[in-house]
Design a protein around this nucleic acid. Structure first.
Lengths: 128, 128
DNA sequence: AGTAATAATGATAATCATTACTATTATTAT
DNA sequence: ATAATAATAGTAATGATTATCATTATTACT
């Protein structure tokens, strides 16, 4: 790829993200990577998260608060706990043909869809 | 309602939002309201948008960029144009029983879902 | 109606996630 | 090796949103 160079930092970021299932924020990834790379910069995290999510290597989850990231890019859905703001996977079957269905109701082109459930997670329920 | 008082500003905000279908941002509502209420403050807009969306009177649409608002609270979906960042209604039938379906795959309680399509709107397509 | 209680406002400062800038360092091509 | 240039660390800037606080508006009570 012309104009793109390897970097240890980007490799470490992607590796770290691929090993986890907790949809971390940029800040959380920064904390985690600092143990193996004490000099890594938060700007580097953001720059690479944007690179990787722009080319589809990872997923950016936006729910109105802080962005979360996911390296598991098979199509799947998420739930945001409105109490603790954690993001969970919802491993239900994907809805087939949904983009095509929406296409009928839209002037323009539908390319993707994002389905986010809101709720309260088990942990937060037990706290009451 | 104890602890809540009427305000001309909140009425004007809700009125304004109910008359439009363009999913304005806080800033856009501010601009629009300033013509009838030149002294209204941006903080007042935000404070009331939060009040109204917290109690379900209006809808907050978060797509990772600036928040958009919608006073038409019947359940429906949206499309974000990834070029111009405008939000459009997608008036397709709502997916019945989706929360209940997701519930089976989640520890905790599912309360709602938000479905956001991404695409390119007619306007932006014609610009190429 | 008049007054007390208090919620809401306008103006402005503060916060916080994210992006931009810049001199230096690391990676790749020649 | 060396030159070219992409990426980094560190830090400053941005921009949306929230907090603060003295003043004003709304409601409750006599």
């Amino acid at each position: 790829m012309p104009g793109v160079k390897h970097s240890r930092q980007r490799d470490a970021l992607l590796n770290n993200l691929r090993l986890r299932y907790d949809h971390p924020t940029a800040e959380e990834l920064y904390m985690s990577l600092k143990s193996e790379m004490p000099n890594i910069s938060l700007g580097t995290i953001y720059r690479n998260l944007n690179l990787l999510s722009d080319d589809g290597t990872i997923l950016k989850i936006s729910d109105g608060g802080v962005d979360h990231f996911d390296a598991h890019t098979h199509e799947h859905y998420h739930m945001l706990c409105t109490e603790c703001k954690h993001v969970y996977d919802v491993d239900m079957p994907v809805i087939e043909g949904l983009n095509e269905q929406a296409q009928k109701y839209v002037n323009g082109t539908v390319n993707a869809h994002f389905l986010l459930f809101n709720g309260v997670c088990e942990n937060c329920q037990n706290k009451k």
